[in-house]
């Protein structure tokens, strides 16, 4: 079991290092991640929303739907946390004891 997990770790590490050779250099302005829409956000944020902070305008305006989803996820996680522990408290007496 131990050797299997070490083997998997080595395999994943080899895969990741192989994939790393395809990534662009650090801070390359020509990298695909820096090309597509992110220059447009930086150029238009002031005239579109009067908000100099591009992070805020992208977060709440250009990608507001995404943020709504994230907020719902947080809320669901909180409700799930409440519900899991609520059940534990209510049927405290019926929970199975391991050695009985």
């Amino acid at each position: 079991m131990k050797w299997l997990s070490l083997f998997i770790l080595g395999l994943v590490m080899a895969l990741l290092i192989y994939a790393e050779t395809d990534l662009p250099d650090r801070g390359d302005p020509e990298a695909p991640a820096n090309q597509h829409v992110s220059p447009l956000y930086l150029e238009r944020t002031v005239e579109d929303t009067h908000t100099p902070n591009a992070v805020t305008s992208v977060l709440a305006d250009y990608r507001g739907y995404d943020t709504l989803g994230e907020t719902v996820v947080i809320f669901t996680a909180g409700i799930a946390c409440v519900l899991i522990l609520m059940r534990r408290r209510s049927d405290d007496n019926q929970i199975r004891k391991p050695n009985s």
Partner: peptide, 30 residues
């Protein structure tokens, strides 16, 4: 554009309330 500015502000306040409530709620339950 001013309208979008106000809209962003309202939405940020909503997010702040949501995060505040959920963080405190998780802590209280744990």
């Amino acid at each position: 554009a001013e309208l979008r500015y106000v809209g962003i502000l309202i939405v940020e306040i909503g997010i702040a309330f949501g995060v505040l409530g959920i963080m405190v709620g998780i802590f209280d339950n744990l």
